[in-house]
Amino acid sequence: MKVLIVEDEKTLAYEIKAFLKKSFYLCDVAHTFRTGLEQLELNQYDFILIDLSLPDGDGLEILKRAKKSNPDAAYIIITARTNLKDRVSGLDLGADDYLAKPFYLLELQSRMQAIARRKFNITDDLLPIGEFNIDLQKRLVIHDQQKIELSRKEFDLLSYLLLHKNRVLTRVQLSEHIWGTFVKDDYDSNYIDAHIKNIRKKLNVWADTEWLETVRGVGYRIKK
């Protein structure tokens, strides 16, 4: 999949590119409004990530024009501008998602996955793990046709880990995903641990959960 990153902060653009490269995305980077438009004229992209505040123009304007040259691409706005107006006008102009800086690259990737599934009509949302099947659409964990009740946050955690299987996810990455824009006053490391403990407890009744690993000092991983 081809990705264009329009981001004036060079280091940040580089980090996004490096991360996505590992997941086999092909990335082009544009640091200005002008080069962004040029790239869009020359190439077709599957994903276009647009920073709203560019030194020589408004990212929303790029979005507007790119919609014409790259109508099939998925658009994600990445910005430090968090006001509602920008968000609404971004989504109105046809952006598929909106990520406020700072975001975890992991979060960016899973948003891209979600958009890809939606755009390319991937309906096979039943993901097998161990002796369980996870239905992302209906938000269910199934064992032998038996539904297992998980709380909303527990399910979010489990599916997030599963979507990034074989990768260690840290507690801060997980809690960011679960809490989204909610502002916390302190760092609550036990929070994720308590949820994982509950997930294990609930699933262990039916089958073992060796695939859900604790990586000491780092975080959690689903190994497959």
């Binding site: 902060e9 980090e15 800086k101 700072p102 690259l105 990455q173």
Partner: peptide, 16 residues
């Protein structure tokens, strides 16, 4: 926010 973004993403890449 921007420097925090960079730091955060650099570490993420490093951890990977």
């Amino acid at each position: 926010m921007t420097p925090i973004s960079i730091l955060q993403n650099k570490m993420e890449n490093l951890l990977a």
